[in-house]
Computed example of a mutant assay.
Amino acid sequence: MTRTIFITGASSGIGAATAHAAVEAGWNVGLFARSEAKLADLAETLGDAALPLPGDATEFTQQQKAVDRLAEHFGSVDAAFANAGTGLSAAGTEAGDPEEWEHMIRVNVMGLLWTAKAAMPHLRKAKGDLLLTGSAAGRRHIKGSVYGASKWFVHGYGGNLAEEMREFGGRCTVIAPGMVDTPFFDEPKPDKLQAEDIARAAMFALDADKRAAVQEIFVMPND
């Protein structure tokens, strides 16, 4: 039976690369992001295995409706990838912008919580997998980094989720990359990781034998 994965932040970068990798591996994919046009283009490239689901990750009801629609369309949701995330233009505490902080927390923390909450009933049925995009910044102290602190939450919550999901045979994996050359940055980073590197890590976690719980994967630039 073909498995189905719900991916947030799917219109570009790690999300889009993971969608490509999943379809190549025989999965169906639900593509969730705000950019309806980008999702439509990606879905056209991926074919019938992809369902575009435009929506805002910071709105629980939108994620819930998208996951339920995906399950209805393909018959199940066997995995979810809480990948949507954003950064800050002003670093540090004194120089930081409180409005930017609030928006980032809504995406990086609340958006991830909404993905977990919306997907969990389906993952329980499927004994499925939940992937979270963490960061190397979520495991080290960086001077004044509010963004890094938001990723510390992801790592802590991911471990807690792994224990919760273990009770019904599910798994939770935090994918923690170093710097990746994606639209997240204003300037290209061609010497850093590529989105495809992180997509391969995500697929490794999903394809691991059910006896193995891959709770964290760190992927760092080799420079």
Rank of each mutant, 00 (worst) to 15 (best):
A79H: 10
E36W: 00
A25R: 13
K189H: 14
A195F: 09
F60S: 12
G169T: 03
S35V: 00
G170Y: 03
L123D: 01
G96A: 09
A49R: 15
T4A: 10
T133W: 05
H155K: 13
W114K: 00
G169I: 01
F184H: 01
F218E: 12
F32P: 03
P98I: 01
A199G: 08
D186R: 13
L113H: 14
G55P: 07
A16S: 13
E94Q: 12
T8G: 00
G26Y: 09
D129W: 14
G128A: 06
Y157K: 08
L113E: 02
L88P: 11
R69T: 14
T133D: 00
K65N: 14
M110A: 14
A66P: 11
L53D: 01
V29Y: 09
L70V: 12
N160R: 11
R140W: 02
A119E: 04
L131C: 03
A57V: 15
L131W: 05
G158Y: 04
E94W: 13
Q64I: 01
E163I: 09
G128F: 06
G158A: 10
H155L: 15
Q62E: 15
V77N: 02
I14C: 02
A79Y: 11
K125E: 10
L132H: 05
A33W: 03
E99Y: 00
K117V: 02
T61Q: 14
K65A: 13
V174Y: 04
D78C: 10
K38N: 14
G30P: 11
R171Y: 06
I198T: 00
A80C: 08
T86F: 06
L88E: 08
R3W: 04
V219F: 09
V154R: 04
V77M: 07
F32N: 02
T18A: 13
A118N: 10
E72C: 07
L206T: 05
D48V: 08
T4D: 04
I105P: 11
M203Y: 11
C172F: 01
K65S: 15
G169Y: 04
G138C: 07
A37M: 01
R200Q: 14
S35R: 15
A126W: 01
D68F: 03
T8I: 01
S145F: 03
H122W: 05
D223E: 15
G148A: 10
V146D: 03
K38F: 03
S12Y: 03
F168K: 00
A213D: 13
L130H: 05
W114I: 00
A137E: 10
T115G: 03
R69A: 15
H103F: 14
I175A: 03
A195E: 03
A84V: 01
G30H: 05
V77F: 07
V29H: 11
I175F: 06
V180N: 06
A118F: 09
R211F: 13
F60D: 07
T8C: 04
F32M: 02
T182H: 08
P54R: 01
C172P: 08
M220H: 12
K127H: 13
F204W: 12
E187T: 12
A43W: 11
F6E: 00
H73P: 11
H20G: 03
Q64G: 05
F81G: 00
